[in-house]
Design a protein around this nucleic acid. Structure first.
Length: 117
DNA sequence: GCGGTGACGGTCG
DNA sequence: CCGACCGCCACCG
């Protein structure tokens, strides 16, 4: 049994809040977790995350809308995303402005997320 | 206690 | 659009 740091716990908590069919980038998670712009820590935390944690780690992408996992794990993540209705564009990247999760707009009343077919 | 590493982000070419 | 460089911080040996 490993004791996770409160920092990790906060990161995991934020990732858990990502709705289905929606994605978030590492920097966004870091900011929501109160880590500032230290997105690397989020990646590190997710790396230490066991597969059965119940955390939707597959909804976390980098700022380019690309999967950062090396090897076959990337395929797995893409498959999980596609299963939720999130599909990459022709160039292989996910349309962030289209799928990115918005916990709550600073300027509520405006959700530029329209465009879903 | 120190040094290297990494599921990143932003900038430059 | 893509690739390379640097910075930033926690974890591991």
């Amino acid at each position: 049994m490993k004791q996770i740091s409160p920092l990790y716990a906060r990161i995991f908590a934020v990732v858990r809040k990502i709705p289905r069919g929606r994605v978030a980038c590492y920097g966004q998670i870091a900011r929501l977790a109160g880590l500032g712009n230290h997105a690397r820590l989020v990646g590190y935390a997710l790396h230490a995350l066991p597969p059965r944690s119940g955390v939707p780690w597959h909804r976390v992408l980098n700022a380019r809308g690309r999967v950062s996992l090396p090897g076959s794990a990337a395929q797995t993540q893409l498959q999980l995303l596609e299963r939720e209705g999130v599909r990459p564009s022709a160039n292989g990247a996910i349309d962030l402005p289209r799928y990115q999760w918005r916990p709550s707009s600073p300027r509520a009343s405006a959700q530029p997320n329209r465009g879903l077919p």
